[in-house]
């Protein structure tokens, strides 16, 4: 039995036994190479689940949908390691209760897809894997290319990209970490971040979002994929993740009991740049 069939029947069993009220997985998409999030509430619907190497979205986003978990019932969700990492972060930020999430874990290695052992978040110890996780080579190369630029070149690079931003907030909406009920860009007293999508306002928005994700990003790349104007958002999030690892030896989502990196400190944190 392939993993797809295995998970279909497992999802169906979870639903029919009443253990979970909902299974969030993937279904066929509008084209042959697309997969779309699929929500199954009945064992029959669970038969529509698809699980293959095209299932790259991070479905943990849906776990923070307002009101979804407020009834205390459980939800099962198909997650790759980056999704599991997101769940760890969400638990550590009190957005999820560990016992409300059943994880149907899987991993994709090129075209191969394998099932992950364990159903509860505590079954997954991702620490080492995440630490040694490197982004796809093209991202890494691009990030290095930017690091090698001088500030003016870097600015031009981002100016070109951010000038395209239309503030559709797709990056925010697909991001599991963007669960705020009111985003800072929607705060108008005072209006720290302008809603206008001129380049300066776009810099503001993208910098603020990157800062808010620093030390919290699960590196799932959802923002990057969602961006309709192809801004390489992943690069800046990758850079932030690298910074917190290098500076504070902190890797977001290693486990679910971390303290937020920017709400904690060590007395001997590096401060070479401070006069």
């Amino acid at each position: 039995m392939g993993i797809q069939e295995q998970y279909r029947s497992e999802a169906a069993a979870l639903l029919s036994s009443g253990e979970v009220k909902l299974v969030i997985g993937f279904g066929e998409g509008s084209t042959a190479d697309r997969r779309r999030p699929l929500f199954a509430r009945t064992p029959e619907e669970a038969q529509k689940f698809v699980l293959d190497a095209a299932c790259i979205a991070n479905l943990s986003t849906y776990l923070v949908t307002e009101g979804l978990l407020s009834d205390g019932k459980k939800v099962a969700v198909f997650l790759k390691p980056d999704g599991i990492r997101s769940v760890n972060i969400l638990i550590s930020e009190a957005q999820l209760k560990p016992d409300q999430v059943v994880i149907l874990g899987y991993a994709i290695d090129k075209a191969e897809i394998t099932a992950l052992e364990g159903r509860n978040i505590s079954d997954f110890s991702l620490g080492e894997e995440i630490r040694s996780h490197t982004p796809p080579p093209h991202i890494l190369q691009e990030a290095e290319r930017i690091e090698e630029m001088n500030p003016a070149e870097r600015f031009e690079f981002w100016k070109a990209h951010f000038s395209k931003c239309i503030k559709c907030y797709a990056c925010r909406q697909v991001c599991p970490m963007c669960y705020c009920r009111r985003c800072i860009v929607d705060v108008n007293q005072p209006q720290w971040v302008s809603t206008s999508s001129h380049t300066l306002g776009n810099f503001e928005w993208n910098i603020v979002r990157a800062f808010h994700l620093a030390g919290r990003c699960a590196a799932c790349g959802a923002c990057d994929r969602a961006c309709p104007v192809n801004i390489p958002l992943r690069l800046v999030n990758y850079r932030m993740g690298k910074e917190v690892i290098d500076a504070f030896d902190y890797c977001a989502g290693e486990n679910s009991s971390q303290k937020p990196v920017l709400a904690s400190f060590k007395q001997d944190d590096p401060e070479t740049f401070i006069l």
């Binding site: 930020e93 957005q95 705020c180 009920r181 009111r182 303290k259 937020p260 920017l262 709400a263 904690s264």
Partner: peptide, 13 residues
């Protein structure tokens, strides 16, 4: 209270 997301970062900080 209406907009607090309850992430408890402030509690730790």
């Amino acid at each position: 209270e209406t907009t607090c997301a309850g992430c408890w970062g402030c509690v730790y900080a």
